[in-house]
Write a protein that binds this DNA or RNA. Sequence first.
DNA 1: GATGTTAAGTTAACGCCGTTCACTTTTGTT
DNA 2: AACAAAAGTGAACGGCGTTAACTTAACATC
Lengths: 214, 214
Amino acid sequence: MSPRVVDPDRVAEVEASIVEAARDLLAEGGPARLSMRQVADRVGVSAAALYRYFENKEALVRQVIGQAFLRFGEYLERAAGTQPRGSLERVQALGEAYLEFATENEAYFRVLFSIQRDDPRALEDIPEGGGFDLLREAVEDAIESGAMRPVQPELVALYLWSVAHGVMTIALACRIEECVHSKAGGVPSTPLELFRAFRTLVQDGIKAPVEELV
Amino acid sequence: MSPRVVDPDRVAEVEASIVEAARDLLAEGGPARLSMRQVADRVGVSAAALYRYFENKEALVRQVIGQAFLRFGEYLERAAGTQPRGSLERVQALGEAYLEFATENEAYFRVLFSIQRDDPRALEDIPEGGGFDLLREAVEDAIESGAMRPVQPELVALYLWSVAHGVMTIALACRIEECVHSKAGGVPSTPLELFRAFRTLVQDGIKAPVEELV
DNA sequence: GATGTTAAGTTAACGCCGTTCACTTTTGTT
DNA sequence: AACAAAAGTGAACGGCGTTAACTTAACATC
């Protein structure tokens, strides 16, 4: 009947080696190096061969993104493990881990949250429980323990995500000192330091306390 | 002596028409449409001709960015005008204007704060007083008036910028409901609404008030 | 007004990109 | 050994940024 049977393991192996090559190229030379031809060269195969395993470049990149999200999740989980549940410190640690991941895996981060998305359907392959759920749970715990103001957890989590993400993307778009061209300033210049400096603002807000009726 | 003299006005006129074509293409079709060949087509000239006016594509894009920053500044100044100096409302209005600009000029925003910047030198052409200074001044005024906690103004301004920027870039990278896949949620789904929902968090912080010694 | 210099613009090409298609090689089963 | 399908190849298409050689147009000078 069937004169040749396909071995799924073998296929998966080849696919993995392609994704690996793509990942390494991305980490080494940024998104510019991530081309089908260069990936094929590194795998040791012609560019056309890649299309037997991935429908197009976008599908390949999607796989790379999936792997990056796994690594991202590791950063967050490691950070969460260092602080007790229900504490504000745990929430803070998650934020810092976000920036550590982004800093240490800049090329990954660029692709993960690429602002491109010309195609309105994307990132549907974010691991379900990945990252955000961890943050929301930390927020829920902190509210339950009484350390955090009782506000809708999703909202607080999104807020914290925005701060961390905003710091990082601003830092990637321009060197911070330049964008601010701070005279006299003394503002931290690395994303992580800056985020740490935001800590009191995040915790206590920008508004002056009301009881100052001096 | 010189058998032909160059008319600076004429040159500036042609340059302007090129930048205009580039801007329109960007607004119409996003960064993908912004190619030298398409710009040249729209101007009614060959692609090579553009290189008589701009060193390369990056230089042309830089001009487009410069124009976008001007429009951006208009949004901010208009917003600042609606609220009294020294008020927290003025600071809030600046944040909302940020998101309005980004929403109404998405293609501009994408290029303005493109995460690409493979070349580490860029955005040096941000108008000196553009945007950030306006925000910092609003913060300084609010501190002086006693409405805002007395913290280093640059730091507070960067913080507010991070929140607004973070909300927008997250929204551009993925539809918010998807990223959050909020069950039960009820979280706003547009960047502007989300930013408005953050207002109390920004003003009062996430930490539970201490006087709750019930 | 003819001349000569030079700005402005054109065409063609190079090397890159993603992608496709016709073709060849390899592979496993019968 | 024979065969059918899988796997891979090379060449090509159209698009990209950019460059180089060449043509055309404009103008100050004689």
